[in-house]
Design a protein around this nucleic acid. Structure first.
Lengths: 141, 141
DNA sequence: AGCAACCTGAGACTCAGTATCATCTCGGGG
DNA sequence: CCCCGAGATGATACTGAGTCTCAGGTTGCT
């Protein structure tokens, strides 16, 4: 398996390329929807990889820092992750199959500026997640 | 203490007005920023109210259902709540003092429609939270 | 007042996430 | 090519949020 984006991100940032990290990067690359830390633990076990739970959490944290992965909060309140590349953006997540798609600015920045102006708050951070049904699931009924 | 909005919401929805629920509504009314379930447990203990932990969680769930309270996810990943009234809206939360303020549509609906058109997703639900510094904390330095 | 449905508190339980620490390994320097 | 120390790992124990169960207590309708 060729090195994934996550592996390059680790390398570029000066992190060691360990066996565990490569494996976790592979597991993430093999997923396509969003996933939880527990999913990766289960995947690792299914493949008989000996990776500690703690290592999975630690690696996810690092990857979130490096923005190779983004953390999101599902409507259920669960914490999940999606693989991604660009610096800051948002996702539309299919609540049926979990497929996610990046979306760009789309006038969003203007909305934030308008809110700042009207509330007097200085907005430093935000969390924006959209949930719905993807085109495939729509047509599949 | 006069009955809070939360108490009316429970009543209107046909829930029983129990001592525990009134107390919890009071605790919520006495807070002004966002708070966690654990905060309420601590508040209850501080006031020597004998309310079970489970009851606090259950009541919060009910209040979220009734939209007397909204659940939000802080950037840290913690689950918190804010008291609120209107049906569906969003908040700007001060990351310094926790004060929150409602915001209305602000062109947001148009952004969502645009995203639907461009991605082909049908968007059913979303999560939008803004974090920053409120005017008071800004001027307080 | 009486009753049944609903609600409660206690406590046990599950599960995510974190802390600790002895051991291991990656990879830069000799 | 080997050495060696910083950095990473996995086992384990721990914390803390949230859930479940159930016997007993309240609420509100009649």
């Amino acid at each position: 398996m060729t090195d994934s984006i996550a592996v390059h991100a680790l390398d570029d940032a000066g992190y060691r390329l360990t066996e565990a990290r490569r494996s976790i990067a592979d597991l993430i690359a093999a997923r396509n929807g969003h996933f939880t830390a527990a999913d990766l633990v289960a995947d690792a076990r299914a493949r008989h990889l000996e990776i500690g739970r703690a290592t999975i959490f630690r690696t996810l944290d690092v990857l979130v820092d490096l923005q190779a992965v983004e953390r999101l909060d599902l409507p259920t309140g669960d914490h999940a992750y999606v693989a991604c590349e660009r610096a800051h953006h948002h996702h539309v997540v299919c609540s049926n199959c979990g497929a996610s798609r990046d979306i760009d600015d789309a006038g969003w920045r203007a909305v934030v500026r308008d809110i700042e102006r009207r509330t007097g708050y200085r907005i430093d951070d935000h969390r924006l997640e959209l949930f719905g049904v993807c085109p495939d699931c729509k047509s599949a009924g």
